[in-house]
């Protein structure tokens, strides 16, 4: 089993140390929660796993493969997918097309092959459309395939972003506050989706403020504060840790 590993990663922005030697691993088929107060470095860590920020010290690996210097695109190619705090969709494109974008790395045809509509291009397009549609139907977005993304409500946008990440055929999905702005009922449905990913063997990193949701769904939880890891363990251990209660949960 190959895990996604951050090994002692450090990130500095000028004089500010956003992350200090933080280690974390996400196993396949596990939901790993990442919590902490605002500014504790959660999203910074996620961005370093995805390659948006280079690591100053430490390493990012999948199994034995060192990804510390790999581009964002390369990390997508080895199966790291993500969603964003504020959904980043293509507003003028349809829901189906947005999801199909996730399958970009499976399209092997070049510009000229596309321009002259070679049979291989059409076959790829069909295959991609079929599996994007299947994913969207599984997510409950089957009714919206032809809607333009700018017409979606907030929950639909969040689910569509997860759909796009899934069409990438990911080994790991990093979710940046997926429950943000969702209603209680919608968060329950999000839980169904995340559990399904886990059951399919995908490793999920869940950055989230909604602590009840995190403790309810995660197999392990890591807590950050001021760029340092303060507690790591099962939801039960973390939620009863006095330090976590003091800096984040409150009593």
């Amino acid at each position: 089993m190959t895990a996604l590993v951050a090994a002692g990663v450090t990130k500095r922005f000028g004089g500010l140390t956003a992350l200090a030697a933080v280690s974390l691993d996400v196993q396949p088929g596990e939901v790993h929660g990442l919590i902490g107060p605002n500014g504790s470095g959660k999203t910074t860590l996620l961005n370093m796993l995805c390659g948006y920020y280079p690591v100053d010290e430490g390493a990012v690996r999948i199994g034995e493969e060192d990804l510390s210097r790999a581009s964002v695109q390369r990390r997508a190619a080895v199966g790291i997918a993500r969603t964003f705090q504020k959904p980043r969709l293509l507003p003028t494109q349809t829901v189906l097309e947005n999801a199909m974008l996730g399958g970009w790395r499976d399209t092997r045809t070049g510009f000229l092959a596309a321009a002259f509509s070679m049979p291989r291009v059409r076959a790829e397009q069909r295959e991609l459309r079929d599996r994007a549609q299947a994913v969207l139907e599984g997510l409950g977005l089957g009714y919206a395939l032809k809607h333009r993304a700018q017409l979606l409500d907030h929950a639909e946008s969040r689910f569509l972003e997860i759909g796009r990440a899934l069409v990438l055929r990911p080994r790991f999905v990093l979710l940046d506050e997926p429950a943000g702005g969702l209603t209680g009922a919608e968060i329950e449905r999000l839980g169904i989706v995340i559990r399904t990913l886990r059951d399919c063997g995908i490793g999920v990193l869940l950055v989230e403020h909604h602590t009840e949701f995190v403790f309810g769904i995660c197999d392990r939880v890591t807590t950050l504060n001021l760029g340092r890891m303060i507690r790591h363990g099962t939801p039960h251990e973390v939620r009863h840790d006095p330090e976590v209660i003091r800096v984040y949960l409150g009593s």
Binding site: E137, I192, R195
Partner: peptide, 10 residues
């Protein structure tokens, strides 16, 4: 969402 269909799709 439909967990069974989603799992099948994945």
């Amino acid at each position: 969402p439909d967990a069974a269909r989603l799992a099948a799709a994945i």
